[in-house]
Computed example of a mutant assay.
Amino acid sequence: MKKPTFAIAVTFQIKPEFVDNFRDRIFQQASDSLRLEEDCCQFDVLTSEDDPTTFFLYETYSDAAAFDAHKTTPHFADYDRAVAPWIAAKQINRLNLLENPS
């Protein structure tokens, strides 16, 4: 596995009636991404302690190009179509790994 240099952090607010559907589908997406994409290093799914409709994804990739390639995969397209109507809000953060200079 390559060392990740890029991360994506996504916060979702899911419509309450779709929380269970989203949870099932996002775990499938995480599994597909890790299994099918050599440059997907990590795909964690978290939820808020206080609000079960808030989900947070933390994904790492070998580089930004690998994440951009991730968004063109058939499994991502299928996931994106499936969950779009369930999302009330979404915030995406693109992050670069900083090397500790010491």
Rank of each mutant, 00 (worst) to 15 (best):
F67P: 14
I87M: 08
F22I: 02
F6R: 12
A66H: 01
Y79F: 09
A88E: 14
N96K: 14
R94Q: 03
K3M: 13
D50F: 12
T73S: 11
D20G: 04
Q29F: 07
V10K: 12
S31M: 02
A89V: 00
V45C: 11
A84I: 01
S102F: 13
F56Q: 07
I26K: 14
D32F: 05
T72C: 11
Y79L: 08
V19D: 08
A88D: 10
P52C: 15
A7T: 01
T11G: 11
P16G: 05
I92F: 04
T11M: 15
F22T: 08
P74M: 10
V19I: 03
E17P: 08
I92E: 06
S33Q: 14
F18K: 09
H75M: 01
A9T: 15
I14M: 07
Q28N: 12
F22G: 07
Q13K: 11
F76E: 10
Y58N: 03
A30W: 12
Q42S: 06
P52R: 11
T53A: 08
N96C: 06
D24Q: 05
T47H: 15
L95W: 04
Q13F: 00
A7G: 06
A77L: 06
N100Q: 11
S31I: 00
R23A: 06
F76K: 04
D39N: 14
D50Q: 15
K90Y: 02
Y61T: 09
D68T: 01
T54V: 14
A64T: 03
R25Y: 05
A7H: 13
M1G: 15
L98S: 13
C40D: 12
S48N: 13
T60G: 00
A69L: 15
W86S: 06
S31F: 03
E17R: 08
K71D: 12
Y61M: 01
D63P: 15
F56K: 11
F55W: 13
D39G: 08
P85H: 09
E49D: 12
S33A: 12
Q91R: 13
A84V: 09
L97M: 11
S48A: 12
P16H: 04
R23C: 01
D63S: 09
I8L: 15
R23L: 00
S33T: 07
D44Y: 06
T60I: 00
I8H: 13
A82R: 02
A89Y: 03
D63C: 11
F27M: 07
I8S: 14
L57D: 06
Y79Q: 05
L95Y: 05
N93M: 14
Q42E: 05
L34K: 14
T5A: 09
P101W: 01
Y61I: 07
K15G: 08
R25S: 15
P101V: 04
L98K: 08
H75T: 04
H70P: 05
Y58V: 02
P16S: 11
S102I: 04
L97R: 14
S31K: 07
A7P: 01
F76A: 00
